[in-house]
Design a protein around this nucleic acid. Structure first.
Lengths: 232, 232
DNA sequence: CGTTAATTTGAGACCATTCAATTTCGGTGG
DNA sequence: CCACCGAAATTGAATGGTCTCAAATTAACG
């Protein structure tokens, strides 16, 4: 998290110590476990330490829309600081460990320290930018484009956070989850992934994603990393 | 804007005066005029005083996705405070007057005044929540649902901001713009609106929207106002 | 009252869905 | 180490919602 923030906000050692000194409580969640539920009052903010998580909303016919994926080092719910009721669900994607702190403690620290205040606000603003890009992805791209774009985003974020390990990426997301994130069905997601594989753009199997032709994938997904605001 | 904020953050008269005392510059934009362009460096934050505006992104094939609509009293680009480059475009929907202030002035005021700081962050967090709901709208609802949901949201926000005037709403959004916001084509938007009219749910013509059966419309659009966080 | 933008209509094509059934994979216990 | 199991991935065929491409009609505006 510090590494990510350091790209834009100059945190001092004091800032880092103050943040680390908060009364964090750690916890491990099993796959698919709910970290937060829509409609519940908010109390804490949560950093994902290890594993993957995602946010989602359920619609009246029972189907699910995934709104974002999260990787280690990212906050899952900073909006809880000011919003009293959760407006969406948060679930662990695989076995995930987190650290949670009461929102009032975080708010106090934000009052005391400008840099942390800025870093946290910036975090929520970048989240927001990613949501906007997802709106575009769902609204104006076909199946190939949507999936290609999602893969580009995840690869880019994994790379930027240093979680990637050379050849390819750890990719624990099922095809059904990709479908729920891209507004498609699992069946069509499957066929679309096959078509990307057949074209030699990606290789995806056993929870491992290798991007064989990055330029091609960004072209298919119309991907431009600007919205991720890596350098503010 | 003060009215909107008052629902959640207790602004004092001093807060309001300090905000009003900033070096605002007013300006009027014609229909479709660009207030901001993707890729440009950011410098100011803008309040929409009168009229409508929307944010959009263009994709590689030339089509446009509208990301949000804005009505009088709303900030259009608070993210500019911390993001150096705009990641989307902002356009006036009809003749719109705005007030802009340099982002550094706003940041300074936020440093000085907790309430304003909270109100502004909250504003961006609610924006974010609306983007999330749009992701759900585009990903998991059919044409009728998407359009019904959009109408519910706009009606609810117009009502909440006191812009509504009894019978129906001023609705200067063209069918093509509704299409660009819902990820549909103008043709299909037209047919879907007709079907909603035929069912006696809405009446929409000459820039005037009347919701004849609110319960029915919210049911079709699977609309739940929670995500608007009217009461925090 | 003329001109342009916006809305409306029709018909055919296509992308994605639905519904089932089958195969493969990952993990578990014998 | 293999047999087994449920989850995940894959396949097929038919259906359908939405798109595309024009063209016609209506509304808005100076």
């Amino acid at each position: 998290m510090f590494r990510r923030w350091a790209r834009s906000v100059p945190l001092t050692d004091q800032d880092k110590q103050a943040l680390a000194a908060l009364p964090w409580s750690r916890r491990v969640y099993a796959r698919d476990a709910y970290l937060a539920r829509e409609g519940e009052p908010t109390s804490v903010c949560t950093v994902l330490l290890d594993g993957f998580a995602f946010r989602q909303k359920l619609v009246s016919d029972g189907s699910r829309q995934i709104i974002s994926f999260h990787i280690g080092g990212e906050f899952l719910d900073l909006q809880n600081c000011l919003l009293e009721v959760a407006d969406h669900n948060v679930q662990a994607l695989n076995r995930a460990s987190i650290a949670a702190v009461h929102k009032s403690a975080l708010l106090d620290l934000m009052t005391a320290r400008v840099n942390i205040r800025r870093a946290i606000w910036l975090d929520t603003l970048i989240d927001s930018s990613i949501f906007r890009e997802w709106v575009v992805n769902l609204g104006r791209r076909d199946a190939r484009g949507r999936i290609a774009h999602l893969l580009c985003e995840l690869a880019d974020r994994l790379q930027a956070s240093g979680i990637a390990d050379g050849e390819g990426y750890d990719f624990p997301i099922t095809q059904e989850q990709v479908a729920d994130a891209t507004g498609l069905t699992a069946v069509h997601t499957n066929r679309t992934l096959q078509s990307l594989r057949k074209d030699g753009v990606i290789s995806l199997s056993s929870n491992r994603l290798v991007i064989l032709d990055w330029d091609r994938l960004t072209e298919i997904g119309d991907f431009n990393e600007r919205y991720l605001h890596h350098s503010v």
